[in-house]
Design a protein around this nucleic acid. Structure first.
Ligand SMILES: Nc1ncnc2c1ncn2[C@H]1C[C@H](O)[C@@H](COP(=O)(O)OP(=O)(O)OP(=O)(O)O)O1
Ligand SMILES: Nc1ncnc2c1ncn2[C@H]1C[C@H](O)[C@@H](COP(=O)(O)OP(=O)(O)OP(=O)(O)O)O1
Ligand SMILES: [Mg+2]
Ligand SMILES: [Mg+2]
Ligand SMILES: [Mg+2]
Ligand SMILES: [Mg+2]
Lengths: 632, 632
DNA sequence: TCGCAAACA
DNA sequence: TACTTGTTTGCGA
DNA sequence: CAACAGAAC
DNA sequence: TACTGTTCTGTTG
């Protein structure tokens, strides 16, 4: 009778997520215990507990379902898996060289750069309520991204927390990306701190000029070196025949390291087989737990359990698993002009309230106005409006509605959102207590003729995704056979054909770095990004705008002239801005200068984890635009 | 050579402000020391230091100026003072009975009411970054309003801080005010937690009905008792012949006490003479220090130093001092339809930034849109736009500009504000680092014909300010003569004709409270203020709005109908709202019900302190609408 | 009219 | 980590 | 299409 | 005191 999910209680409800570079070999149990104690009894904790229960239940259901499978069903599953694998392999292309670059402890590294006192202490970026990331010293204490600051302090009382300066990181990101563009002008930025490159052409050009014909890894080390020279920050890199292995590789020797998986099916399999499924991007905490409970821990297990798995998930997910265990999963790096953005949203956490009036009169307008600024700036109209509510229990609800036509009007969006919100405060039920309100618009269509183009800075050309369609059969067996262990400790350089570059205090490119400047590099190391004071220089012109006579005497009149000049300049700029939607809007009449660059739309495009409900960690910020963790 | 202002260093830069009920007899020096240590070295601290220096310098200048005065000048000053006093006294009216009611530890008391666990511990309302107020237990530790939470924690590690719930306090405030209205329908609310009443008429009516002819203090005790019955909160009261002494009196026996100054010139003087000048509303920390340095500590000193003082300040301020030392200062309670509001402003603190772009594109629009919501809601147009900047050094700047005509358009206000902001980022200077941006509009004129009237709930009639113009001479001597010490320890009830009501756990009105309901009381004790779920009941009507055909089948269509109904209801409501500007906007088509009441415009109207530059305490909040301390 | 500083809740 | 927000007043230029 | 959940940075 | 904000994807009904 006793439901087996009832003994979830023996495990910690909130456990340290140590799936991050720099967190190996730490005392996970002790740290988890501290986290648990700091949270126990809170509403957040209770919600986590409920989610974990649901996870366990779902896993149990899946297990039951699998146990009930007939031998025939299992074999059918395996056949389906083999077919999937055949298709994936036949579409695979091992001829190109993909690189994934990921900055080390990015926000934290920037802060350490700007403030030397932070360099030798455990520190994190964020606020008391939520951290965006931590440096590697702090990670030794269990302090990491998405952890509340006040808990981090319990793990590490000496921890120094510094507030988030998103725009600064964006500046630095631009410097880094300027280097990347030299290796692949079409590189695809997945976030401020990471990007996918296809350096095949770059390598070819290199060879053509007959310079530095060394191994691919050398070029990448050089790239990292140049990033360091340009930004004073270290990056890690993964190199492989497709973006997936490149991505995994970039984490392999973090920080300040790189790892290469050679461009052959065998080498890829050798690398991937032994990896815990959690390393596969797209398999997160919940899916990992779900898979583990089905006896799947490593990617090899994914293959071996393919018969059962087939019956445990939907076809698309199954395809994802099969490709993942081959190291061939797709959907990572898009081209620079990758797919248009699909939604724009704004959400904010606040003191929980049950006042519909306040939500409608104060919060919703703020959100909608902010949303429309973003929407307008990005040059889209939206047709679907979704509101998001987080209750004070941390449960999340969404409600959406399709408008008759696409819009970017505050009026339209706000009234739709308001209607949705009001539906949640109907007379019968007790008013919900809301701790977060969000508004999203989707079903986007580009506004007007010319879409706002923010990307004109670096490069432009077409898509670049390594396509995973038709190709050859073979390797099905290869997986089942090769089961030798590969050296994962990353020490000896090129001990196998999968190469490792060891970590030193700065990236070393032997002699390569000397010649780096021979490639068509713009010496754009220190991009001047403070657009602040620009465009005020037009105050020399004279202009009668305000028309009305101005009291205030001599100096007063002069001041007024300056003022109106300045005001008209702004009008001009505002128009420019709404018309071209530039991300890096520099106000003023003397535009034309100022570098514009795309804001790196975060796109990963991998399938979501299984079908489990499972956990998740959320946290609060501490302030308006104060110390928050947000991206704007 | 050594400037005398250089030895300011011996005193604490940031000193505990213990000028608050519940903070007498605490170890100010020790507490100040802790505060000092918690702050030392911070930018905030440095700014305070600079201000204190400036204070000291100005005081020194004043002292020098006074020392240089001739005997004739001093005598002329005294004559001017005497004239001022003659005028004030001749205008004085001791025939009416004014009452000032002030809730005890208001926000904190509400929280203690709502959460019994807080009742017996030191607690405060606010966030880690700033407290709005504290309960009396916390005050024993030096914890008080306008103190950052993290410093409060050092003073009192057990302190419990609970977030601010402004709307809840507003609800409670309405309950309290409903009681006050029975004693003076024209009462003037100075803030959520305090009000001025003129109960002369009430007392007359009482006597007319021949009920409870007891002393005035009894009526007030009864009032406080009724407040307690209605709200479960205690209030303190001051009773006197004018609002000034009433105001001072309400603090005299706080918490849960009252004090009466009888309505004669002698009694008022007896009361006022011995008071530290700091007790006079309008004399704050800086002015106190300035006066002290001139040898003026008590109100009597104000009189005695009137000759010198005359030469140390401007006529208006001098008049204020002279009236203050008579206990006759004016400008306190207005009538319910007191003067229209003079400005509307919004300001926000954030992580300091030097990015003009961000300020212009993100923050300024937010502020302006929020501002215009308030402006619209209050039914005004404004002609003057002022921006406020706080630098990361905590220096504050304001820049303003008069528009050609009054407006409430976001466009107009924002572009003016933007122009002003841009002026602070001119090419020459280094970009300032801004930690706070604010926008204010002033020179208000009521919008359209009918001004939005939110006050129709309680009472309506005209102004009520006790006027302090022409009257009789006399008391000049009276002051100089009576110098006996009056009992300030407030224990024995009516030991003099200045009455004290001792504190008990609830206000005691002997038998009075029994008869209270015989006065024309609405039994409006529990005003239902949750306007939340109203107006959703119209979803029974059918309505084709969206016109376009809706996909989604049967239930889908029904849902869509509900939606559009709801949406149209909102439209209606929004229109209502912008047309009548009601403060207590209840959305929905079925309006007509729902009590409306004025939002108690905070008006005090006393002269500003001296002319020194001097100190001030500022602090940060922690979040958006999160834990903040703000009034909206 | 503008900028600053003080005051209060 | 971290020192508010909204409104009014007076002084001095 | 709408709601939910997982994932990533 | 206190557990984020933005975007995308897949599953389920
Ligand atoms: N959960 C999160 N919430 C908000 N911001 C985040 C979150 N995770 C990461 N970020 C921000 C801060 C990071 O510095 C930046 C890049 O993320 P990521 O590359 O995953 O980590 P990292 O660069 O800080 O460390 P590393 O890559 O060395 O593990 O994105
Ligand atoms: N500096 C401030 N900043 C923000 N809000 C404040 C500030 N001071 C007071 N408040 C709010 C919280 C208070 O409860 C409320 C009433 O103020 P006030 O009457 O002066 O103190 P109080 O009612 O908390 O204690 P008491 O009146 O018993 O001394 O106004
Ligand atoms: Mg990184
Ligand atoms: Mg990254
Ligand atoms: Mg009070
Ligand atoms: Mg008060």
């Amino acid at each position: 009778m006793a439901n087996s999910s009832s003994d979830t209680s023996r495990k910690n409800v909130i456990e340290l997520n140590d799936n991050k570079a720099g967190m190996t070999g730490i005392d996970k149990a002790r740290i988890s215990q501290i986290i648990e104690e700091a949270s126990r009894g809170s509403k957040f904790y209770q919600r986590q507990q409920a989610k974990r229960q649901a996870d366990a239940k779902r896993a149990e259901e899946t297990r039951r379902k699998i146990d009930a499978l007939s031998r025939e069903a299992l074999q059918a599953g395996e056949r389906a898996g083999d077919a999937e694998i055949r298709r994936a392999v036949s579409a695979a292309d091992f001829s190109r060289t993909h690189v994934h670059i990921d900055m080390d402890a990015f926000y934290a590294a920037v802060e350490m750069l700007d403030n030397p006192r932070l360099r030798h202490v455990p520190m994190a970026v964020g606020g008391n309520d939520m951290l965006s990331t931590s440096n590697y010293a702090a990670r030794r204490f269990g302090v990491r991204a998405a952890m509340p600051g006040f808990i981090a302090k319990k793990l590490c009382p000496q921890l120094v927390i510094v507030p988030c300066r998103f725009r600064r990181y964006k500046e630095v990101s631009r410097q880094v990306q300027a280097v990347l563009a030299d290796y692949d002008p079409q590189f695809s930025a997945a976030s401020l701190d990471e990007a996918y490159l296809d350096i095949t052409d770059h390598l070819a050009n290199r060879q053509a000029i007959n310079l530095l014909p060394g191994p691919k890894a050398t070029s990448v080390a050089e790239l990292r070196y140049r990033v360091f020279i340009s930004s004073s920050l270290t990056a890690s890199a993964g190199i492989g025949p497709n973006p997936m292995v490149a991505k995994i590789g970039s984490d392999f020797n973090k920080p300040n390291g790189q790892y290469r998986v050679a461009g052959s099916s065998d080498r890829v399999l050798e690398f991937i087989r032994q990896l815990p499924v959690r390393k596969v991007p797209g398999i997160g905490r919940v899916t990992e737990a779900w898979l583990n409970s089905l006896g799947v821990s490593t990617c090899r297990d994914l293959y071996e359990q393919r018969g059962a798995l087939y019956h445990a998930c939907r076809p698309l997910t199954y395809q994802f698993y099969m490709r993942a265990c081959l190291g061939l999963s797709g959907g990572f790096g898009y081209g620079r002009n990758g797919p248009d953005r699909k939604s724009v949203s704004v959400e904010r956490t606040f003191q929980a309230t049950d006042s519909l009036t306040w939500l409608l009169d104060e919060k919703l307008p703020e959100l909608c106005e902010s949303l429309v600024r973003h929407l307008t700036k990005s040059g889209f109209l939206g047709r679907t409006v979704t509101i998001k509510l987080k209750l004070d229990t941390f449960e999340v609800l969404t409600r959406s509605h399709g408008l008759p036509s696409a819009t970017d009007s505050v009026q339209a969006i706000q009234s739709a959102a308001a209607a949705l919100l009001r539906q949640e405060f109907l007379p019968g039920r007790p008013a919900p207590r809301i701790r977060l309100l969000g508004v999203r618009v989707s079903s986007l269509t580009p506004r007007k003729a010319v879409i706002a183009d923010c990307s004109s800075g670096v490069g432009s050309a077409g898509p670049k995704q390594a396509r995973l369609d038709e190709l050859l059969v073979r390797s099905t067996k290869t997986i089942a056979e090769t089961s030798t262990k590969t050296n994962t400790t990353a020490a000896v350089c090129s001990s196998s054909s999968n190469e490792t570059v060891s970590k030193s205090s700065t990236p070393v490119t032997s002699s390569t770095s000397e010649n780096a400047s021979k490639f068509n590099l713009v010496e754009s190391t220190s991009v001047e990004t403070k657009t602040s004071a620009s465009s005020a220089s037009e105050s020399a012109l004279s202009c009668p705008i305000c028309s009305a006579s101005q009291p205030g005497g001599l100096a007063g009149l002069n001041r007024h002239l300056d003022f109106c000049l300045s005001r008209s300049a702004i009008q001009t700029a505002v128009n420019d801005y709404s018309n071209d939607g530039s991300a890096c809007f520099t106000p003023g009449s003397n535009s034309a200068s100022s570098r514009k660059r795309i804001e790196a739309a975060s796109s990963s495009g991998r399938p979501a984890g299984g079908s489990a409900s499972g956990g998740g960690k959320r946290a609060r910020i501490a302030a308006d635009g104060r110390t928050g963790v947000g991206t704007i």
